[in-house]
Design a protein around this nucleic acid. Structure first.
Lengths: 126, 126
DNA sequence: GACAGATGACTACATTTGTAATATATCATC
DNA sequence: GATGATATATTACAAATGTAGTCATCTGTC
């Protein structure tokens, strides 16, 4: 019984990330959280919030004279879904070539490489 | 002096992939190449081609009574650009966490893991 | 309890995308 | 050179997206 994930557009991701990182927030909190990163008018951010509410990605709690917003979908699920759609589009769904290309193209430090190899080792072990 | 890559939409990727894989094609060739994979009307595919031409992603050669279309942008560049935008959106630009999540989430065979480790080894070596 | 300021609701509007249909130009054939 | 088949060009149209503005309402303050 898995829920259908609403499709989250580019700009909307920014808003969701605020909620995932900081938990329930008022509209104004979100605006403040984003103010340093984007050049949107507060109105624009309110609009994005409304759309996400309508899509079911955000749920609202009535606090009397205003709302508090919180994520209604899990970050990990959204990431997985976006990733799958990205791999489908760009690599025709072929995960391993996608990974290989990612790895080859990435600019990684030795530490980062070790970390990734660790992950691979564990996958092999398990 | 790097060229600006046009933004290639989801459906348009399918068309570009045909041209990247098969080289210059007539509109009809593209339609045929896609016929097994998608349920679009030929008209729809022609529209996608036109849009890609207008965007500068495809160039046309006049063959007298029809055109032959070929990719005007390199596949590798488009993949890189899409990847970067994906990582920016979903992982806020943090490549290593993106890779780690990819790897952890992927369902890989031992052979595939070996292949990826090979790549990592070489990166470390180089 | 009238008013300024905060908040949310509704409305706006151009662009892009998905998905095509109609109209026009051209070629190949009789 | 008229006709049917092809190919391209032009047009359509709704939904999603980016980016806001205006209107109505609630709230706390004097």
């Amino acid at each position: 019984m898995k829920k259908e994930l609403p499709k989250i557009a580019d700009s909307e991701w920014r808003v969701m990330q605020v909620l995932w990182e900081r938990g329930p927030q008022t509209a104004n909190d979100v605006v403040n959280a984003l103010s340093s990163g984007v050049k949107w008018k507060p109105r624009t951010i309110k609009t994005l919030i409304s759309r996400l509410v309508k899509k079911g990605a955000i749920k609202v709690t009535d606090e009397g004279y205003r709302y508090r917003y919180s994520a209604a979908v899990k970050e990990s699920a959204c990431i997985r879904s976006e990733t799958k759609s990205f791999v489908r589009r760009v690599y025709k769904g072929a995960m391993t070539p996608a990974l290989a290309a990612f790895l080859e193209d990435a600019d990684l430090s030795v530490e980062e490489i070790d970390e990734l190899q660790e992950i691979l080792d564990q996958k092999k072990g398990g």
